[in-house]
């Protein structure tokens, strides 16, 4: 935790930089979705667009969490508390998403 005023002053520039990066990333997300020659994969929205979009969002979120929310130098306890939330949140999302998944009905399941 940067508590002394000198250290905090040093961080101001970092905060500005992160802000600028966040703005650029936002423009990038829209550009990837809207501009035709930046559209990877097939035309329109597809899996690659999803991965790219979520990747940029994750980068942004990580920056906010690490720098603005000071997670880059936080106590171990906080990592545990917040980490559990993230972990179980992902559990819920993934397992719910697989709700109807049924591998034996996949045609190539038995190597056909």
């Amino acid at each position: 935790m940067a508590d002394s005023p000198e250290e905090i002053k040093k961080h101001v520039k970092l905060y500005m930089l992160i802000g600028v990066i966040l703005f650029i990333c936002t423009v990038l997300t829209v550009a990837v979705a809207k501009i035709e020659w930046l559209d990877f994969g097939a035309r329109g929205f597809d899996a690659i667009d999803m991965v790219i979009g979520l990747l940029i969002a994750s980068v942004k979120a990580t920056l906010v969490a690490l720098i603005f929310m000071h997670l880059n130098h936080e106590k171990k306890m906080i990592y545990w508390l917040f980490g559990m939330g993230i972990f179980f949140g992902i559990c819920l999302m993934v397992i719910t998403g697989f709700a109807f998944s049924d591998p034996i009905y996949y045609e190539d399941f038995f190597g056909r």
Binding site: L81, F82, G85, L92, M93, A99
Partner: peptide
Amino acid sequence: KIAIWLFLASEVMLFGGLFSGYVF
């Protein structure tokens, strides 16, 4: 400080629930 991070963890679950709804 502990309390707000705990609260945020539960908020993660709250929006996690909504996002799972969206995904599903």
